[in-house]
Amino acid sequence: MASQGTKRSYEQMETDGERQNATEIRASVGKMIGGIGRFYIQMCTELKLSDYEGRLIQNSLTIERMVLSAFDERRNKYLEEHPSAGKDPKKTGGPIYRRVNGKWMRELILYDKEEIRRIWRQANNGDDATAGLTHMMIWHSNLNDATYQRTRALVRTGMDPRMCSLMQGSTLPRRSGAAGAAVKGVGTMVMELVRMIKRGINDRNFWRGENGRKTRIAYERMCNILKGKFQTAAQKAMMDQVRESRNPGNAEFEDLTFLARSALILRGSVAHKSCLPACVYGPAVASGYDFEREGYSLVGIDPFRLLQNSQVYSLIRPNENPAHKSQLVWMACHSAAFEDLRVLSFIKGTKVLPRGKLSTRGVQIASNENMETMESSTLELRSRYWAIRTRSGGNTNQQRASAGQISIQPTFSVQRNLPFDRTTIMAAFNGNTEGRTSDMRTEIIRMMESARPEDVSFQGRGVFELSDEKAASPIVPSFDMSNEGSYFFGDNAEEYDN
């Protein structure tokens, strides 16, 4: 783990906690998980779902989305002020799938948001429990990260689609708070800032007046979040320049895209947490497990152990491969979309394939898809080993990566060399080191050039047997250095459309 220093740990961010010791953190995270579980059980009762239907990941996603929508204050306010045809701002819903006479049927349900809020609060001892809501947002974000390569979004903001390893959390809503900021990748933060800068260039009043003052505060806050992700002084200094700019424009845009590229080699610290679907927490609570009393951590053995003992089902389209669908969801559960496939294969105990080789589309089923041909199958979400999630980018030494994705962002704290394609990355730096950030740029390029592919990161860190909950005997895996390590390699994943 990167030293926490003055930073709060993510469990504290996750639970809005002030400084807590490890036991208190485990208890408050457990409380959050228990609340999600209780809410899910109650919703299944309301909807009269069978046990099997309640364990269907598509039903879980609909129920999670309903509660997130019920608590989305800004959108609710907007919907009330701008009524649109056929949208009731006070209601929320989605597809629920039921097994009827041996076939899967889709039923569109509609609930009062007020009623959903009441059920959620009741499951969370009367609190709004925003930490639990954020947790579900991060699960949705991790699922998107594993399912889609955001080529269009990258290109629109002047970045290269091969930089997708920097895009963790790119679909997280803005209201996801400190826990959300911690899991956002460098590219995601750059993209958010670039969008602001572009608006400022096109709209003279963007930075002016009372609204402009708020915009400015948001801009500086985002700059500080991004600065905190960088691990070298030169990158941090460049972020200070971007933040202090009187009138952010093209120079800042250039600096930010430069920094994003540099992060492929001088990786930023991005938190990883295993956020599971509500249909995993519900049955665990129903079986009598007391998360608050037992304590829970999002970055240790607990999620692995929970998945070892969970039964989750998914709808499967006619030509999809259930094992591939399982891999997709497994990666999402562990926030591992940008991790090295060699490491993932070792931990999972079966070969993890790149996205383009998977015969599976996303987990969600569109409303126009034919239910007649839908089957369902068990998702295999178990693992051979477990490993500690990392909050750091690993040290800054790398190795060759593949054509589709030119770097990785480690999820697990496991000893290995970190793949990246130096030639491709360095070719993108057209040696432009003039301007006010020239000395920093020169320094950053120097550090990137001296990074050695064969150097090892996370020295001495290994994986653990599932029986080793105290992480007492690390097993340090050895990897084939020459092997392909990137998930979005030469990829044809669908595009994420909101």
Rank of each mutant, 00 (worst) to 15 (best):
Q364M: 06
A336E: 06
L306Q: 15
I109H: 15
Q308N: 07
N211C: 15
I301V: 11
L110N: 09
T171A: 13
K348I: 09
S450T: 09
G94V: 11
N144G: 15
I63E: 04
Y496C: 14
A260Y: 01
N211Y: 13
R195T: 07
H135Y: 07
R436L: 03
R342D: 09
S438K: 00
L315F: 15
A251H: 03
S450L: 13
G362D: 12
A387M: 02
G490I: 02
L276Q: 14
M447A: 06
L266T: 10
D145M: 08
T360S: 14
G185K: 02
M159A: 06
K113Q: 12
E53G: 08
T378W: 01
E292C: 08
D128W: 01
T45R: 01
V414S: 05
S345P: 00
M43W: 05
A179I: 01
G180Y: 05
P419L: 15
E292W: 05
L306I: 15
Q405V: 00
I25N: 11
V363T: 12
G249E: 13
L341S: 00
E73Y: 02
T62L: 11
S28W: 03
R26H: 06
K91I: 08
S310G: 14
D468A: 09
I225C: 13
V363Y: 02
M374E: 04
A178W: 09
G17Q: 07
S28Y: 14
K214Y: 06
E443R: 00
Y219H: 12
D128K: 08
D88A: 02
R441K: 09
Y289V: 15
E375V: 11
Y111I: 13
C164V: 14
A451Q: 13
A178M: 00
Q42G: 07
M331T: 09
P95T: 12
I444L: 14
E18W: 07
S165Y: 14
C44R: 10
E469N: 13
D455A: 12
Q168K: 09
R99F: 09
V100C: 03
L166S: 15
Q399R: 13
M196G: 03
T423A: 13
W386H: 03
L307R: 03
R382W: 10
M447H: 01
E320M: 06
F420R: 00
A493T: 11
F338L: 08
I25W: 02
A251C: 11
S345M: 05
M447Q: 12
N101V: 11
S402R: 09
K103M: 12
E80S: 15
V183C: 02
N498G: 12
M448I: 07
F412C: 08
I96T: 11
P318V: 07
M32C: 04
K90Q: 02
V100I: 12
K103L: 12
I347T: 13
Q308L: 09
T188I: 10
Q327E: 13
V155D: 10
E192S: 03
F39T: 10
E434I: 06
F291D: 11
I41V: 04
T390G: 07
K357D: 00
A403K: 01
Y313T: 02
N498Y: 15
A286W: 06
I445N: 00
M136D: 00
T396E: 02
P318N: 08
S392L: 03
R208G: 07
N21M: 01
S335T: 11
M167W: 02
I96W: 07
A181W: 13
D497F: 12
A237Q: 09
N144K: 08
G394Q: 08
E494K: 10
G431P: 09
G37L: 08
D255L: 07
T62C: 11
K113Y: 03
G86E: 05
K77Y: 02
G228E: 09
C279F: 11
R55L: 13
Q122F: 05
T215I: 08
R162W: 10
S245Q: 12
D203I: 06
D421F: 08
F489Y: 14
Q405F: 02
G54M: 09
M105I: 15
Y10D: 02
R452N: 15
A451K: 14
E380D: 12
S413P: 11
A427L: 13
